[in-house]
């Protein structure tokens, strides 16, 4: 076992991990943060997406020891507790979520986009979310939600 120290949603955490432990396992099984979902565990669906030092990564194929000393943000950490992020508000208002399984990953992928491109076109949103699968919505209302959030965040 090895000691991994990382910051998760602003809090410093220390956990014991094996050489093959993934970041997703650390988040869900050791820290009980359950917004990252185990969709495929092979890097194909994006439901386990988190921000690693602000960059979107798939935590199921991110080795835990490779994030030593880094900072991870999950959906829980994109606002202060009790607050709601404009993206969450827009997903709620525009019905961007049905079963909700893809939603945490979708919102983090959208945040990663808006952080670097606050006024994306519809095609840019599509491109940014193309690695996140959704089986319920047909994506239309997810894309609508992201564009609405971008508008709201500008004003």
């Amino acid at each position: 076992m090895h000691t991994l120290e990382l910051t998760v949603n602003g809090q410093t955490c220390r956990v014991e991990v094996g050489l093959k432990t993934t970041l997703l396992e650390v988040l869900r099984d050791k820290l009980y943060i359950t917004s990252p979902k185990v969709g495929c565990n092979t890097g194909d669906c994006g439901t386990c997406s988190v921000l690693l030092d602000g960059v979107l990564v798939r935590s199921c194929i991110t080795n835990a020891l490779s994030v030593q000393g880094k900072s991870v943000t999950t959906l829980e950490g994109i606002t202060e507790p009790g607050d709601i992020h404009p993206l969450q508000k827009a997903f709620h208002e525009h019905y961007g979520s049905q079963c909700g399984f893809c939603t945490p990953g979708m919102i983090l992928a959208s945040k990663a986009l808006l952080d670097v491109n606050p006024s994306p076109t519809r095609d840019e949103v599509k491109q940014a979310l193309s690695g996140n699968l959704c089986r319920c919505t047909g994506y239309v209302k997810i894309i609508d939600s992201v564009l609405a959030a971008a508008d709201e965040m500008k004003s």
Partner: peptide, 17 residues
């Protein structure tokens, strides 16, 4: 034998609907 091999549409595969 995994989700990635079963090709469901992504945002890029959905036409204007």
């Amino acid at each position: 034998d995994n989700l990635g091999d079963y090709a469901i549409p992504t945002t890029m595969d959905v036409p204007d609907m």
